[in-house]
Lab assay of single mutants.
Amino acid sequence: TTEYTFTDDEEARRAIEELKKRGLTFRYEKHGTTWRVRVD
């Protein structure tokens, strides 16, 4: 499991789109302004 942290909404959304394109399994949660994206 790899975890990424983003504080920029645009950056987080781009990363999420990219992961979807690659067909990877991931989860994300947003805490205030911080996004945590975990890739299995």
Rank of each mutant, 00 (worst) to 15 (best):
T25L: 09
R13G: 05
R27W: 15
K30V: 09
V37T: 00
T1H: 12
T34D: 04
F6Q: 00
I16C: 05
K21N: 09
D40C: 15
I16H: 00
I16Q: 01
I16E: 01
E18N: 09
R22N: 09
Y4Q: 03
A12M: 13
T33N: 14
E10M: 10
E29R: 06
T7S: 08
V37P: 02
R36E: 06
T33M: 09
T2A: 08
L24P: 01
T1Y: 15
E11S: 14
T2E: 08
K30H: 07
T1P: 12
R14L: 10
D9I: 11
A15Y: 15
D8M: 04
F26D: 00
D8E: 05
K30Y: 05
E11V: 08
E3I: 14
K30I: 09
T1K: 08
R14Y: 07
L24A: 12
Y4H: 03
L19R: 00
L24V: 13
A12F: 15
G32V: 02
A15E: 04
A15P: 00
H31F: 11
E10P: 03
K20T: 12
E3M: 12
E29N: 05
E18K: 07
E17T: 09
F26G: 02
Y4P: 01
R14N: 09
D40R: 08
T25K: 13
E29V: 10
H31I: 15
Y4T: 03
W35Q: 02
K30D: 02
R13N: 07
G32K: 03
L19N: 01
E11P: 03
K30T: 04
E18P: 00
R14M: 10
E17P: 00
E18L: 10
G23N: 05
G23S: 03
K30R: 10
R13Q: 11
R38L: 15
E29P: 00
F6L: 02
Y28S: 05
A15H: 08
T33K: 10
K20W: 07
I16T: 02
Y28T: 09
T5W: 15
R22H: 08
R22G: 05
E11C: 08
E29D: 07
Y4E: 02
K20P: 00
D8R: 05
V39M: 04
T25H: 13
R13A: 09
T33H: 12
R38V: 15
Y28N: 01
D8K: 05
T7E: 12
W35K: 01
A12T: 03
F6C: 05
R36C: 12
V37N: 00
E3S: 06
R14P: 01
T2W: 15
T5Q: 06
R36T: 15
F26L: 07
R36F: 15
E11A: 12
T2L: 13
R22Q: 13
D8Q: 04
T7D: 10
T25I: 12
T25D: 06
T34Y: 10
F6A: 00
V37G: 00
D8F: 04
R27A: 12
R38F: 15
I16A: 02
D8Y: 03
G23M: 03
F6P: 00
E3P: 02
D9K: 08
R38E: 14
K21D: 06
H31G: 03
D40I: 15
E17W: 11
T1F: 15
E3H: 07
H31R: 09
E29K: 07
A15L: 14
